[in-house]
Write a protein that binds this DNA or RNA. Structure first.
Lengths: 342, 342
DNA sequence: TTAATAAACCAAAGCGCTTTGGGTGACAAT
DNA sequence: ATTGTCACCCAAAGCGCTTTGGTTTATTAA
C-alpha cells in the first residue's frame, strides 16, 4: 500500500492525504479522521526512502562502533549506551544505523555515511586523545556529538562525558584516607581519552599526598576480564604488592577479584578495590549493598543525553555547541577497607 | 555531489555514469576508468535513499533486539552476534538497522520495518517457545532468519541454532560420570526456547542414570551475574546442597563462582560448575586452560552464518528454507572435579 | 450585488537514482 | 551499395513521497 493507492481508495489527492497524515492544518477534521482510519486499516506507513528523498532528511542516526585488532568485538558498554540513546530516537521517529568498523577504516565509514546520505548525524564513540575523526566530521559537515572528549580543544563541538579525572581523584583520595599507599591503577588504553583523564586524576591525588607514582603498578590495556585477572595476578606476585586497586571497568574488576581470591586473599580486608561502574544491566553491582566500592555513572543515561543533544543539533543547526559533564557518585561497597598492617 | 553534477562534469549522460559505476558492460573501458577516477576524486557515492527508491531494495538488514521489563537492556550476547553478522553485511554493502523494542511492541516494530520498507530482511533474535513473531513475519512477507528455534514446527523457515539439548545432555553426563548426583540447573527463562531445550538435555541425561530431577535445584531467570550469585547462594544454603552446577551463561557463571567463594568453597574441588560459553570477547574463558569447564559455541560465528543465510535468501527468494545446527564443544577446564565424599 | 477572505482541496514539480527502450556511427558481411 | 551487427552512448520514465503554487467553493464585508 502506497500513497497513490491510498489516495485513490479515499477519492482524494495525494497532497491532501499526505497533509492529513502529516498533521497539517489545510485539511478538514472530518477528512483527516477518515484518512487516518483508512490508513490505519491498511497499515499504511510512508516509504522511508521516498520520504527521505523528498525531504532531504534521513531520519536516521549513525553509530560507528570501533573494534580494535585486540578485542575484535563490540564492547558491552556500547550496547548499554545505545539502549539509552534508542529510547530517545524512538520517540522522535529516528532509526539507528549501526556500523562496526576497524580503527583503520573508521574514517572511510564516516565519509560513506555522509556521501551516501544515509544518516542525519552520528555519535562519535570512544574518542582517542588525538582523534582524526573530529576534524573529518567537521570537514564533511556531518552533525555529531562525541561520547567523551579529546585531549586538546573541546570547545568547537558538542559532547557528553563523565568527569573522569575528578572521579578517579576522589577514589584515590578515598583509598589513601583508608591508609593505602601502594595503589595500583588498572586502566584502559591510555591512547583513549577517558583513560588518560582517569590517570591524571589518580596521579594528582597521589601528588596531593606526596606519594610518588610507581609505573610498575600502573597498567593500561583493553578492558577485558582476563586483563584484570592477568595484571592483578602479576601485581600480587610482586615482592612489594599493592594493597589497593583502582580499576577502570566493572568487567575488569571481575577479573581483579578472581586473581585476588586465587591468591587466597579476602577482598575488602586484605586487598581493597575501587572500580568504575557504568551500571551495566547484566552486571548489577549488588542489590542493596554494592559489591564493589565504585565511581558510578550510568552509561545508559549518557546515551540518552547524547541522543537528545544530537537531535537538537540536527533540528536547530545554527546553535552553539552543547556540553554535558556528568558527575559520578562514589558508592562505598564491600570491596574496600582500611589498609592492613603487615 | 550527485549523479547529475558528476555526469555534467564528465560530459556524459547520467545513464552512462551510473552504468560505469555499476560495472555494466555497455561502457568502454576508457570511459569507465575516467568516470571512476573523477567519482573517486569527488568522493561520490550514490544517495542511499534514491538508490533504494529506484531499485526497490533497501540494502539494509533489521535487527530487532528485545529488551524485557526485567533487564531493560541489550544482552551482551547480541552485541557479539551482531559483530559477526556485520562482517558479512559489510562485504556485501548492506547496512544494519537496529531497533530496540520492548517485548510488547516487537510485532509493531516488525510491521513498521516492513511497511516503511526500510529493510530487506530481519534476524529474529531470542525466539520464545510460542513465538507470535514468526507468524507475523510470514504474513507480512518479510524475509527472515531465526537465531534459535521455536517449540513446534521449524521446517517452514530458516534458522541457525546450536544443539542446546545435546550440549547440556553431554555436560550433565560428564558431571554424573564424575560422581555428581545432585546437579543444579541455573537456566535462562524457560519461555525462551534455548532454555527449554537445555533443560530437556539435562533431564534426559538424569533419566539415563535413573536420577530423579529435583525442582528445588532447577532455577530459571534472566541471565545476569546477580541471578547466578543469588540462586547459588540459596542453593548452597540448602540442607542438602548440590555438588555441581550446570549454568546457561558465562555471565551467570561469574555470579555462581562469586557465591561459591563467598561460601568458602573451592571451585573445581568442593563444587563443580559447567557453563555454556558463547565466547564473548570481553570474557575469554582463560588463555590456555579454560577457567570453566564449558559447552562452547561461538555466538559471533552464529552471527556470521545467519547473515550469510539471510542475504542468500534475500538474493534468491525462491529457494527452500535453510537450517544450520551448530555443534558445541565440551571444553574441560578447572571448574570441575570428582564429587567430594562427605 | 460585488469584491475580498478563508477553508479545503488538487496538479505537478522535484528529490537522485536505475533502467527501459531507444539512437548513432563504425565495421564486417552480403 | 546495402544490410546487419556491435559497441557505445543517451533521453526519459518511474520509484513514492513532500511541497509549491495554484483552484474552487463558501463565507463575510463593503
Amino acid at each position: 500500500m502506497n500513497l497513490k493507492e491510498l489516495s485513490e481508495r479515499l477519492g482524494l489527492s495525494q497532497t491532501t492525504v499526505s497533509r492529513a497524515l502529516g498533521g497539517y492544518p489545510e485539511v478538514s477534521e472530518t477528512t483527516r479522521r477518515r484518512v487516518l482510519e483508512i490508513a490505519d486499516q491498511h497499515n499504511y506507513r510512508p516509504n522511508t526512502r521516498a520520504k527521505g528523498l523528498a525531504t532531504g532528511r534521513a531520519m536516521a542516526i549513525g553509530h560507528v562502533l570501533p573494534i580494535g585488532s585486540k578485542t575484535e568485538a563490540v564492547n558491552p558498554i556500547f550496547a548499554e549506551f545505545i539502549t539509552g540513546a534508542s529510547e530517545i530516537y524512538g520517540q522522535k521517529g529516528y532509526e539507528i544505523i549501526l556500523s562496526i568498523a576497524r580503527d583503520d577504516d573508521e574514517n572511510k565509514t564516516y565519509r560513506e555515511l555522509r556521501s551516501k546520505k544515509s544518516v542525519d548525524g552520528v555519535i562519535l564513540h570512544a574518542p582517542r586523545n588525538e582523534d582524526t575523526r573530529l576534524k573529518l566530521l567537521r570537514e564533511i559537515g556531518l552533525p555529531f556529538v562525541v561520547h567523551g572528549r579529546v585531549s586538546g580543544n573541546n570547545e568547537g563541538h558538542s559532547w557528553v562525558d563523565v568527569d573522569n579525572k575528578r572521579a578517579f581523584q576522589r577514589a584515590t583520595h578515598f583509598l589513601i584516607d583508608l591508609g593505602h599507599q601502594r595503589i595500583a591503577l588498572i586502566n584502559g588504553q591510555e591512547s583513549m581519552n577517558f583513560a588518560s583523564r582517569r590517570r591524571d586524576g589518580y596521579l594528582s591525588a597521589l601528588a596531593d599526598h606526596q606519594i610518588s607514582p610507581d609505573l610498575h603498578i600502573m597498567k593500561s590495556d583493553v578492558l577485558t576480564e582476563f586483563y584484570g585477572y592477568r595484571s592483578t595476578q602479576a601485581l600480587l606476585s610482586l615482592p612489594n604488592p599493592p594493597t589497593a586497586f583502582l580499576v577502570s571497568s566493572y568487567i575488569v574488576a571481575i577479573g581483579v577479584r578472581r586473581a585476588i581470591e586465587k591468591h587466597g586473599l579476602v577482598l575488602g580486608r586484605d586487598v581493597s578495590v575501587v572500580t568504575h561502574d557504568d551500571e551495566l544491566s547484566y552486571f548489577a553491582n549488588g542489590e542493596d549493598v554494592p559489591q564493589f566500592t565504585a565511581t558510578r555513572s550510568s552509561v545508559r543515561d549518557a546515551g540518552r543525553r547524547a541522543a537528545v543533544m544530537l537531535l537538537d543539533i540536527i533540528e536547530n543547526p545554527q546553535q552553539l555547541p552543547q556540553n554535558d559533564l556528568m558527575k559520578t557518585e562514589l558508592m562505598v561497597g564491600l570491596s574496600t577497607g582500611p589498609c592492613p598492617i603487615y
